[in-house]
């Protein structure tokens, strides 16, 4: 984990979990220039998120996406972006930044499972790095569920994801214990789902501490650099 990776952005962060590598940059608060953004007055800032996937991001055995699947991949990316935005929306103090937009840009450099959770965590770090006011840091985690063996695998890789019967991703606002995003696809029983979500929560708590440490150390680092001529 590191912050301040994109020189021109207001805030940015890079997150690496084995093969999964995500980079996020925050631009804003700035004037909302998207279509229709200027016409209407917003009392709150608009949190916008966009996800780009590097062409070489998916594991090597995957066939390159043909033009056929291209549209559905674009739709999946949009869905992904909406998920990231919803996870963070409730925690960013949007009312502080009227008439502006906060743009989150995520680039998935490598995807070896858990890209959604990694993106959310990376965006949280980038928002904090940008100095945007938040109620708390949102941390996300994912698990893979195996229905026949009742096993919950923490932080699955791409291979584990493709073999699991279901994948669940949960974003948690740790300090007041609120789930801000939940997403499970694939089949599972009630018991297993509950077990999975509990696993996600405890992972989130661990991550929260780690991310705090990262931010503090990057802040200290920066201060050191400023003091030295």
């Amino acid at each position: 984990m590191s912050t301040g990776t994109v020189s021109h952005a207001n805030g940015s962060a890079y997150l690496e979990l084995a093969g999964t590598r995500v980079m996020a940059a925050v631009y804003g608060p700035r004037e909302n220039t998207r279509a229709g953004g200027l016409q209407q007055f917003n009392e709150q800032a608009v949190l916008q998120c966009d996800v780009a996937r590097a062409p070489f991001a998916s594991p090597r055995d995957d066939a390159r996406i043909g033009t056929d699947a291209n549209t559905s991949a674009a739709a999946a990316d949009r869905q992904f972006a909406t998920s990231v935005a919803t996870a963070l929306q409730s925690s960013v103090r949007l009312e502080k930044y009227a008439k502006s937009s906060i743009d989150l840009f995520v680039t998935i450099i490598g995807d070896d499972g858990g890209a959604l959770a990694a993106s959310i965590n990376c965006c949280t770090l980038a928002l904090a790095d940008a100095g945007i006011e938040m109620n708390d840091m949102v941390t996300a985690a994912s698990v893979a569920l195996a229905a026949n063996t009742n096993i919950v695998l923490w932080d699955p890789t791409h291979l584990e994801e493709s073999r699991a019967s279901a994948i669940a991703t949960q974003a948690l606002r740790v300090s007041d214990n609120l789930v801000t995003l939940l997403d499970q696809s694939g089949e599972s029983s009630l018991k297993l789902s509950v077990k999975a979500l509990e696993a996600c929560s405890s992972m989130s708590v661990q991550l929260h501490g780690l991310m705090q440490q990262t931010l503090v150390s990057s802040l200290l680092e920066r201060r050191k650099q400023q003091l030295l001529p």
């Binding site: 929306q89 669940a168 606002r173 609120l178 789902s193």
Partner: peptide, 21 residues
């Protein structure tokens, strides 16, 4: 069969884990 095929929380607000269960 009573199994979950998809769980998603689409709106912005938060929800407590216990209430979720």
């Amino acid at each position: 069969k009573g199994a979950f095929c998809m769980v998603t929380k689409a709106s912005a607000g938060g929800i407590e884990p216990q209430l979720l269960f």
